[in-house]
Nucleic acid binder design. Structure first.
Lengths: 226, 226
DNA sequence: CTATACCTACCGAGCGATCGCTCGGTAGAT
DNA sequence: ATCTACCGAGCGATCGCTCGGTAGGTATAG
C-alpha cells in the first residue's frame, strides 16, 4: 500500500556553487534563496494551484505543464492529493528550518531573536511567495493526517513567536499589554506578505523585511532607542 | 440574456426591533451585526465554500443544504459562479458602507478616524468571519468583470487606510518612517482576523478590536500619551 | 361565481463534458 | 532478464446545467 514514489531529479546543476563566495567564509544559509529545489512536477502543480486553486486544477493540466502524459505523472506521485501534501510539507519544513537557523544566529538576545525571526518570515513569504500562498490558502483541501500535521507545523511556528514576545514582555524589553494578540498580529502581518507582495514591485524582499522589522518592533512596544 | 433573478425572502421578522433601545436614541449602525440578512441559498453556499472552497463545492451540495433540488436552485441564481459573485459583492459593499459610517462618526480627527476604522475592520472580519474569509480567499475563482470590480473594491478599502495614515504622518501625529508599508501591515492584520478568529474563543470581537486598536496605534507610532 | 390565463416556485430525469485514475503496453538502460 | 520512465486509450463517476413538466396563487373575462 505504501509504495515509495521516486522524485524527478531535483536539477543537479554542477556548475554554480553559491555556498562559498569570496570575502565571506560562511553566510547565514537561512537568508539564501538562490536555488529553488522544487522538482519539475511540483513546480508545475504549484503554478496551477496558484492560478486556479487545488480543486480548480486538473491532473491533466499539471501533466501538460510538465510535458508529461497523465500516466507519466502518476508514475511519480500516487494521487493529486499527494502533490498538495508534498508542496505543503516542503513549505512548512523549509520555513521551520530557516526559522531555527535565524534564532540560533541571534544568540540569547531576545530583541535580536525577534528581529531575525521577523526578517526570516518576511524573506520567506516574499521569496517563496507562491509556496507560502498555497501553504496558507489550501489547508482545507488537505485530508486526514496530512492536515493535522500541517496545522501542528503552523502552530509550532506560531509558538516560536509567542515565546519570544512573552520573554520580551517578562524582561520589560517589550511593553505591549497584549503579548498574545501582538504575536498573532505580527505573524499575520508577515505571512500576509505572500498575499500581496509583487516580486517586480518597488521594494526588494530585503528592503521590505527591514521596514517590517521596524513596524513590528513598534507594534510590540520595544523600550529604548531605535 | 440579462434576466433578473428574484431572491428568496430575506426573512422579514416583524417582532424584534434592535434599532431603538432604551437609553440610547441612535446607536452607531456600523457596529451592529445583530441581523444577518443573507438569503438562505447564499447562506448555504457560504457554508459549503467555507468547508471545501468554491471549486470543491458542487451545486448539488448547495441545493441539498438549502432543501432545494438543483433546478430549484437555478430558478434563483443563473449559475454557480453567480453565487460566488453575490457573496463577494455583498461582503465588499457591506464593509465599505460600514467603513464610511465609522469615518463619518470620527469627524475630522485623524487619530479618531484611524481608531474607528481599525475597530470597524476588526469587528467586520470577526463578526462576518466566513464571508470575509471567502471574499479574500476566492478572488482567483472570480471571472471577468466581477473579478476586476472586486479588486477595485478591495483597493478602495486599502486607500481609505492609506490616506488616513498619510495625513497622520503629515501632521506629525503618526511617527512611522514607512506609512505605505504600515498601512498595508495594518490592513493585513485586520483582514487576517477572518483566518484565525474563533467565535467561541476567549475574546469577544469587541475586546479584540480594542486590543488591535492599541497594537496598530503603536505600529504607526502615534505620538503623545495612550 | 366560475373559467381561463398567467405567474412564481419549484422538481424528476438526464445530457454532454470532464474528472481522477488505471490498464496494458513500449523504449532504453543495466 | 529486469529495471525505470514513460504513454495511448479508456473506465466509471461526477460535474454544471437544462428540458419539460407540476402545484398553487392571483388577475381578469364572461
Amino acid at each position: 500500500m505504501t509504495r515509495t514514489f521516486p522524485s524527478i531529479n531535483p536539477e543537479a546543476s554542477p556548475a554554480t556553487d553559491t555556498s562559498s563566495r569570496p570575502g565571506s567564509i560562511r553566510e547565514s544559509s537561512w537568508r539564501d534563496y538562490a536555488r529553488d529545489d522544487l522538482p519539475p512536477i511540483l513546480s508545475s502543480a504549484l503554478a496551477c494551484f496558484m492560478e486556479q486553486g487545488y480543486h480548480g486544477t486538473t491532473i491533466r493540466q499539471v501533466a501538460a505543464r510538465t510535458g508529461l502524459s497523465v500516466p507519466g505523472l502518476y508514475h511519480h506521485y500516487p494521487s493529486k492529493h499527494a502533490l498538495l501534501v508534498a508542496l505543503m510539507s516542503h513549505a512548512m519544513s523549509d520555513l521551520w528550518t530557516r526559522s531555527q537557523l535565524a534564532i540560533a544566529e541571534a544568540g540569547t538576545s531576545v530583541p535580536r531573536q525577534f528581529d531575525l525571526l521577523v526578517e526570516c518570515l518576511v524573506l520567506f513569504h516574499a521569496r517563496r511567495r507562491e509556496l507560502a500562498f498555497i501553504a496558507y490558502g489550501e489547508i482545507r483541501s488537505l485530508n486526514g493526517t496530512a492536515r493535522s500535521e500541517h496545522i501542528e507545523a503552523r502552530d509550532r511556528q506560531q509558538r516560536l513567536m509567542d515565546s519570544i514576545i512573552a520573554r520580551g514582555v517578562e524582561t520589560g524589553i517589550f511593553t505591549t499589554r497584549f503579548p498574545r494578540e501582538a504575536s498573532t498580529a505580527v505573524i499575520t502581518m508577515c505571512t500576509g506578505v505572500a498575499q500581496w507582495f509583487q516580486p517586480h514591485g518597488s521594494l526588494t524582499p530585503e528592503e521590505l523585511a527591514e521596514r517590517y522589522r521596524e513596524i513590528t518592533t513598534m507594534a510590540v512596544g520595544r523600550s529604548g532607542t531605535f
